[in-house]
Amino acid sequence: MRYARAAALAVLLFICVSCLFAELFAPAGYATQYRDSPDLAPSHRFILGTDELGRDRFSRLLYGGRVSLILAPTASVISVLLAALIGGVSGYVGGWLEKSAMTLTDLFLSLPWLFLLIAVRAVMPLNTSAEVSMLITFSILGILGWAATARVLASAARDLRRSDFVLQAEAAGMRGWRLFVIQVLPNMKPILLAQFWVSIPIFIIAEANLGLLGLGVNEPMPSLGGLLRELENFSALSVEPWRFAPLILLVVVVSAFQIVLPEKENA
């Protein structure tokens, strides 16, 4: 398993470096349309061919990967912070605050998030550039994705509140926020980290879902979800298997995160 983790980490690093430095590796811009070369098969010039508008698929894959790989962790940070604030604090304080917070969490968990995302996207300002729309999409994912993590953190905070060392600290006169920040929060760090890592692939997949519905990142900016839409026409797939490239990248990235995760969880 150690070797598998190392291999997964290496793959993840390779993909991250390739995507984060897309400008260096991509032969063309993600929006450049070679209108005289639409729908081409892979060639020396276009490694993964071109899409219907003559855009280089390989370049779009790198840029799309970058969008997901930068913004999914960002969404994850947002959701974990919110979860820590809502779940962690309420679990630690307990009483009516915990009950209210858990009711809110249950409400959020029972919401059909996909429809909620669609509704939130529908009221977004219209004149947002592709870059801003990309930020908004992932921020929404982060803001809406805190509930499950909050439950885990509330439960952890509740256990910590009843733990011996917290009782000891209380007996020594430590109270309130000081007790939370010095005694409880450091002990929640492994759970926060694990939740952060667990959430990244979830947000990558969530964006892919939105992208498949055409509601992800706006054109011409690519994202893994947007690129997956080329798989919609499955009768084309047997003759153009290179269309699977974004799916393969998605599966590899998500799997790599899953394999890498236990090591972090144990940290």
Binding site: Q33, L53, A122, T128, S129, L215, N218, E219, R229, E232
Partner: peptide, 29 residues
């Protein structure tokens, strides 16, 4: 989800960029 219209918009976006117009494409349900 309407691929044809999204593509039309992407082409219009690039065509009008040559006139200096900035076009934002907004897919809506």
């Amino acid at each position: 989800g309407n691929k044809a219209r999204e593509r039309e918009a992407a082409l219009i976006q690039q065509d009008l960029a040559q006139l200096g117009m900035k076009v934002n494409i907004v897919p809506l349900d």
